[in-house]
């Protein structure tokens, strides 16, 4: 019985961790390339979830198409927000972007509260009825397909950053922005693309969470904070480190929720972070930026 609970919670934790990875990778991209801390990242995730919700409920689109719609919509909005809000403070000290994005976060969350009301809503994927049991471990088709989609998106992102011209430009800017400008890279275009990718990944995650749990205007803040923990543990700009840290946080949250108390599930990642800062201050990947 204990073993079954353990395996079940481990599986749930891995799925949750994969979703966190999508969110944290986007945050890490923005931090690494624009040297900007985006505290409104959780609101990108929330807005993406609402786009996903309305595209299934109002437009009646299938779940996976809705994820794509949410990604496209939030990607576009992300690029607009970069241009209007963040572009003017690029290159300024970090405190500027921290304050600005915190304000943006509050504004977006309250705007959503005003427009959509605080009631939790669920995205109907139509896949949660199909499920299977293996040795008492329960898995729905919805969760399985979410897991697969997360893996596909992370692989696509890694490929994009490693091999495409735009991806290489992103890496060049992260390593030396002036050298990138001197080489003829259109830095402003890359900034827009980075925000678009980051917004799209957060939106995909939001829609997935909206199907597994709920969509609410205040769902962003906790996710923003967890994402910052993840990129702190994993190392900024380190894709593998971030994925590893995200899964670790997912597991801690899920196992803590299953074995200690579900009520404190949001506290476990922070406790883990404090412990790691005390015991392993160099970070999990050792070094980073």
């Amino acid at each position: 019985m204990m073993l079954t609970v353990f395996l079940q919670q481990t599986l749930n934790g891995i799925i949750l961790g994969c979703i966190y990875a999508l969110i944290a990778l986007g945050l890490s991209l923005i931090f690494g390339i624009l040297e900007t801390a985006n505290f409104a990242h959780g609101e990108f995730y929330m807005i993406g979830a609402f786009i996903g919700f309305f595209s299934t409920s109002l437009l009646g689109l299938p779940f996976f198409i809705s994820i794509l719609v949410a990604m496209a919509g939030m990607g576009l909005l992300g690029a607009v927000i970069e241009r209007v809000v963040f572009r003017p403070i690029v290159g300024k000290p970090l405190i500027n972007s921290m304050l600005l994005s915190f304000g943006l976060s509050t504004a977006l969350a309250n705007l959503a509260l005003f427009l959509f009301k605080p009631d939790p809503r669920k995205i109907e994927s139509g896949l949660s009825e199909f499920h299977f049991d293996v040795c008492g471990i329960f898995m729905t088709a919805e969760r399985l397909s979410i897991l697969v989609l997360c893996v596909v998106l992370v692989c696509l992102l890694s490929w994009f950053i490693q091999y495409t011209k735009t991806g290489k430009s992103m890496r060049a800017i992260a390593q030396d922005r002036t050298a990138a400008e001197l080489a003829g890279i259109n830095v402003r275009r890359i900034y827009s693309v980075t925000f678009a990718i980051s917004g799209a990944l957060a939106a995909a995650a939001g829609t997935m969470v909206g199907a597994m749990f709920y969509v609410q205007p205040d769902m962003g803040l906790a996710v923003t904070l967890k994402s910052f923990i993840i990129i702190t543990l994993g190392g900024i700009g380190q894709i593998k480190g971030v994925i590893f840290a995200a899964i670790l946080i997912g597991l801690v949250e899920s196992l803590g929720g299953g074995f200690i108390s579900y009520a404190y599930k949001d506290a476990y990642p922070f406790i883990l972070m404090l412990l790691l800062f005390i015991l392993k201050p160099e970070g999990l990947a050792g070094g980073g930026k």
Partner: peptide, 30 residues
């Protein structure tokens, strides 16, 4: 800057400023 490079003016900056975590070939391609 990118318009100036496209116009035919490029700079090799002080301190070299190659991208350390990219390969030689990637540096050149960029």
């Amino acid at each position: 800057p990118e318009k100036i490079v496209a116009a035919g003016l490029s700079q090799c900056p002080e301190g070299r400023r190659v991208w350390p975590k990219m390969t030689v070939k990637e540096n050149l391609e960029m």
